[in-house]
Every structure is written in structure tokens, then in C-alpha cells.
């Protein structure tokens, strides 16, 4: 039996004495898509940052495909898309993708391919500063997918996107799922998330209140999850 794509074993994260994450544990199989739900401050971003190796767990550990997150080989297979676009305004789209690509060993050909895929080939050599909001978001999506990651970590990916970028991202995510890529995304847009997700996790003040397969009730009634598993407050 192979190791799960993502295995969180008793993960705690403290900010001083305050536990932002409390004993979070779950295993997610390869090719599954996990929707991470919870109110603001429940610890969604903190958990994603730990899964992506941006931040260390105070206690417990995380294994990605059986490997430590801070091992270079592990991170080479992770794609990260945070709240912000993570691009340099003063560099061109091509320079941005080449810079990040060179950290992953991605060739110039792949960079051009992705620029075409997100419809930015015609402006690839102008600085990102001159881009519209939607164009920047599409470039950010290309950056996260550039190296063909096997695990995608997306922090509220739909929140600030325009309709074109949402369509693009949904298309890419569906295609990625078909290729067996594991996806974890935190979101407030329950409806979009439910359509993609095969598993659902609910964080409540740092605790994993629910972890399980997405059921039909969840798809039809977005409030169901919070009513059933969320705390009264």
C-alpha cells in the first residue's frame, strides 16, 4: 500500500500560548480533492501554510507522499496559490514564469506553452504592472500549475477572481483531477467548492470538526455542514 498523498498527524500550531491549530489529523488519498471550510480565523490558512511548508507545525508532523515537506523533492511537486498573486510587478510575465520555472527546472518551452494556455502570449513581454487584475490572476494560476504539481494547495482561490479567471481555474482543476492530482483548497464559496470536492473538512477554532466524503446533502444545501458539525457560536 502506498503512502497517502497528504498525511497530517496530530498537527498543532501555537502563536505564543494560543493554539491556532489543535490536533488536526487526517489522511487524504492521491487524486482526491479536499475542500477546507471554516469561518475566518478558524485556521484554514495556517493549516494550508503548514501543508505547503511555509510554516512549521509546533507539534505533530505532515507527510506529503510519505516525504517531509521541507525536503526539496517534496516541494518540487507542490503547487501553491495564496491570497496574493505572488508575482513581481516590475518583471514581465515571461520573466516571472522563467524565474519561478528555473527553481523547478522548467524549460522555456513549457513557459511559453503556459503563457498561451492562460491567453497571455500576446502580452508576455510587458511588465506585470501594466496588467489588468484579471490578467494578473490568470498569470498567477499559470505560475502555480507551471511545473505540473501532483499536489495543489489553493488558499481561497475563487475569492478575488473575475469570471474569466474562475472559468479558467475550474477548467484546470477539473483537468488536474482527471490526471490524478491531489487538491486541497480553502474557500468560502461553498457551492463552487462542493462541485469539485470529493472530501470535505470543517475547521472550527483550530479543531477539525468534521472530515469525510462529500455527500449529496452538502451539494444541495450549503448550510448543512455548518449546522451539523459547526459549534453553536
Amino acid at each position: 500500500m502506498s503512502a497517502p498523498a497528504v498525511a497530517a498527524a496530530g498537527v498543532w500550531k501555537y502563536f505564543g500560548d494560543y493554539p491556532a491549530l489543535r490536533d488536526v489529523r487526517f489522511d487524504l488519498g492521491a487524486g482526491e480533492c479536499l475542500a477546507l471550510l471554516g469561518r475566518n480565523g478558524a485556521g484554514k490558512t495556517t493549516l494550508l501554510r503548514i501543508l505547503g511548508g511555509l510554516s512549521g507545525a509546533s507539534k505533530g508532523n505532515v507527510l506529503i507522499n510519505g516525504g517531509e515537506v521541507r525536503a526539496s523533492e517534496t516541494r518540487a511537486r507542490i503547487g501553491w496559490l495564496g491570497h496574493s498573486i505572488g508575482l513581481y510587478d516590475e518583471l514581465t510575465a515571461r520573466e516571472n514564469l522563467r524565474t519561478f520555472g528555473s527553481l523547478y527546472g522548467v524549460t522555456a518551452g513549457t513557459v511559453s506553452e503556459w503563457l498561451a494556455r492562460v491567453n497571455l502570449a500576446h502580452v508576455a513581454d510587458s511588465p506585470v504592472r501594466e496588467y489588468s487584475r484579471g490578467m494578473r490572476q490568470r498569470l498567477a494560476v499559470a505560475r502555480a500549475f507551471l511545473h505540473g504539481p501532483r499536489l495543489l494547495l489553493l488558499d481561497e482561490p475563487f475569492t478575488s477572481l473575475d469570471d474569466k479567471a474562475i472559468a479558467l481555474l475550474q477548467g484546470l482543476l477539473t483537468a488536474a483531477r482527471a490526471e490524478g492530482v491531489t487538491i486541497i483548497l480553502s474557500t468560502h464559496q461553498i457551492r463552487e467548492a462542493m462541485e469539485l470536492a470529493s472530501f470535505v473538512a470543517l475547521l472550527d477554532r483550530g479543531k477539525l470538526a468534521h472530515f469525510g466524503e462529500r455527500t449529496a446533502e452538502m451539494l444541495n444545501d450549503p448550510g448543512y455542514l455548518y449546522r451539523t458539525f459547526g459549534s453553536a457560536a
Binding site: F15, G16, D17, Y18, G41, R205, A233
Partner: peptide, 14 residues
């Protein structure tokens, strides 16, 4: 001080 700080964060989180 650390205890106070922790309690304050709890209060904000609630």
C-alpha cells in the same frame, strides 16, 4: 505576560 496574551487571543477568537 504570555498567559495574558494567550487569554486575549482566546477572547478575540471567541
Amino acid at each position: 505576560q504570555r498567559e495574558i496574551d494567550g487569554l486575549r487571543r482566546y477572547a478575540h477568537a471567541a
